[in-house]
């Protein structure tokens, strides 16, 4: 099964994936195929992280996502992955993608209904 792996420590909330997908799926205002959520900003007040900031951005796929089937069958990247400004997204077989998760940074694996 295919999926998109996001190294979301480096997602900048640049919206490029969201816009690229909207144009590709021709979605009207307010609708998305991929949407980035914001966590924070807040500052930790206790423990080892005391004083550090959390301000993270995490993309999710919506029901409208078709994994860019017509592109990927031609060997192209999905539109969102192609346009990621931070190079923090990768498309592929989920078993291969899982191997990239190294515990050094935070990842999330995105999949859709088959």
């Amino acid at each position: 099964m295919k999926g998109i792996l996001v190294n979301y420590d480096y997602c900048t909330n640049c919206h490029s994936c969201e816009v690229a997908c909207k144009k590709y799926l021709d979605l009207p205002v307010g609708e998305f195929g991929i949407k980035v959520s914001e966590v924070g900003p807040f500052q930790y007040t206790t423990g080892d992280l005391k004083g550090k900031y959390e301000w993270s951005f995490v993309p999710s796929l919506t029901k409208a996502c078709n994994m860019c089937a017509d592109r990927t069958e031609k060997g192209k990247m999905p539109m969102c992955v192609q346009h990621c400004q931070s190079w923090c997204m990768a498309y592929g077989e989920i078993e291969d993608l899982l191997k990239k998760i190294d515990g050094e940074t935070r990842y999330t694996l995105l999949t859709t209904k088959a």
């Binding site: 190294n7 480096y10 900048t12 640049c14 400004q85 931070s86 190079w87 923090c88």
Partner: peptide
């Protein structure tokens, strides 16, 4: 100058 170049450096 594309700031995302520096995001790649950070990565």
């Amino acid at each position: 100058y594309l700031g995302h170049w520096l995001a790649v450096c950070h990565q």
